[in-house]
C-alpha cells in the first residue's frame, strides 16, 4: 500500500511545496505591513520581500578565506529542509499518506538547524558563534513543547501521521485540549520562527539578535536562500497552526491570514524578552500542553 501511494503523494506534495514557496514572501510582507500600520507608519509594500529576494539573487556571494564547504552547503540544506517540510504539511493537498510523520517533520527541520548553526561557527567571528549558541539554547527549550504538541495530537487521533491529525470540527471543537494546545502551538510557532518576543527579526543589534546573528556573514544568493527558507518555515507553521490547531470552520487561506494578522499584532504589542526569560515563556507552553494531554 505504501508503494501505490508514492506516485499519488509526490505530485500533490510538489504542487503544495511550490504553492507555499510562492506565497511565503507574501505572508512575510503582510506581517511587516500589519506591524507598520499598527505602528502608524506607512511601511513597505507587501511585495517588498519579493523585491529583496530578487536583489540578493542578483548580487554575488562574498566569502571569507576561513570558510569551507559547509558554509556554502548550509543555506542549501536549510532551504531544502524547509521545502521538504512544506511538502509534508497536512491540510492542503497531500493525501492520506506521507513519507514521514510528525517526528520526521521535527527532525527534518532539525537537519536545517544543524547546518545553519554549524555554518554560523564557520566564519570565525563572535557574532556567528553567539547566534549559534543562542539558537541551540532556544531550540533546546522549544523541543519538549514540540514533542508534547505531537503527543497531544497522537493521543487524540491515535497516530503520529500528520495528515491524520487535521482538526475535525464536529468532534474537536472548542474543547479544553483543543484551546490549550492551540494557544501553546502559537507560542511554539513564535519561538521556532525567531519572532518577537523570543527573537527580533528586525533588529541588527548584537545584544538582541539570534537568527540574524547567524546569517550576518551571508550575502547574495546564499542570503536569499536563508531568507526564503525562513519565510517558508513560517508559512509552514502557519498552515500547521491552521490545519491542526485552529478550530474554526473557515478556508485555509483565511486561517493563514488570521494567523499572520495575530503575529503582526503580537509583535507590535510585545518587547523582546530577556534571553534567559525564554525559559519561563516556553515552560508556559509545556504546561499548557501537559494539561491538554491530561484533559483529553
Amino acid at each position: 500500500m505504501l508503494q501505490n501511494s508514492v506516485a499519488g503523494l509526490l505530485v500533490p506534495g510538489i504542487l503544495q511545496a511550490l504553492c507555499l514557496v510562492l506565497f511565503a514572501p507574501l505572508v512575510a510582507g503582510i506581517i511587516n505591513k500589519t506591524k507598520a500600520v499598527l505602528q502608524k507608519r506607512q511601511g513597505a509594500s507587501i511585495l517588498q520581500e519579493y523585491f529583496d529576494l530578487y536583489k540578493w539573487w542578483k548580487k554575488p556571494v562574498i566569502l571569507t578565506k576561513y570558510t569551507g564547504w559547509i558554509f556554502v552547503a548550509a543555506p542549501v540544506v536549510y532551504l531544502t529542509t524547509s521545502i521538504i517540510a512544506a511538502m509534508m504539511v497536512p491540510g492542503l493537498l497531500t493525501g492520506s499518506f506521507s513519507f514521514g510523520d510528525a517526528f520526521v517533520f521535527v527532525y527534518v527541520l532539525a537537519l536545517g538547524r544543524f547546518f545553519m548553526t554549524l555554518s554560523s561557527m564557520d566564519a570565525a567571528t563572535a557574532f556567528g558563534g553567539m547566534g549559534g549558541s543562542r539558537e541551540i539554547y532556544i531550540s533546546v527549550l522549544v523541543e519538549p513543547a514540540v514533542m508534547l504538541a505531537v503527543l497531544v495530537n497522537a493521543t487524540r487521533y491515535g497516530s503520529t501521521t500528520l495528515s491524520q491529525m487535521v482538526i475535525q470540527y464536529d468532534q474537536f471543537f472548542f474543547t479544553v485540549p483543543a484551546v490549550l494546545s492551540c494557544a501553546a502551538f502559537f507560542l511554539i510557532m513564535l519561538a521556532e520562527n525567531s519572532r518577537l518576543p523570543v527573537d527580533n527579526p528586525d533588529t541588527h543589534l548584537e545584544l538582541t539578535m539570534i537568527h540574524e546573528c547567524m546569517t550576518l556573514e551571508y550575502s547574495g544568493r546564499l542570503l536569499a536562500f536563508i531568507h526564503l527558507g525562513s519565510m517558508i518555515k513560517l508559512l509552514v507553521f502557519l498552515v500547521m497552526f491552521g490545519a491542526l490547531y485552529l478550530p474554526l470552520p473557515i478556508p485555509m487561506a483565511l486561517k493563514v491570514l488570521a494567523g499572520t494578522l495575530i503575529i503582526g499584532l503580537v509583535e507590535t504589542l510585545n518587547n523582546k524578552m530577556r534571553l534567559f526569560k525564554v525559559r519561563v515563556y516556553l515552560s508556559a507552553a509545556v504546561i499548557l500542553l501537559a494539561v491538554a494531554v491530561i484533559a483529553q
Binding site: 544543524f114 548553526t117 541551540i136 514533542m147 509545556v286
Partner: peptide, 17 residues
C-alpha cells in the same frame, strides 16, 4: 516526552558544538 525532547535537542547542540 519532556525528557526525550530535551535529550534530542541537547544532543543536536552538543554535536554542533
Amino acid at each position: 516526552f519532556i525528557l526525550m525532547g530535551l535529550t534530542g535537542a541537547l544532543a543536536l547542540g552538543c554535536f554542533v558544538r
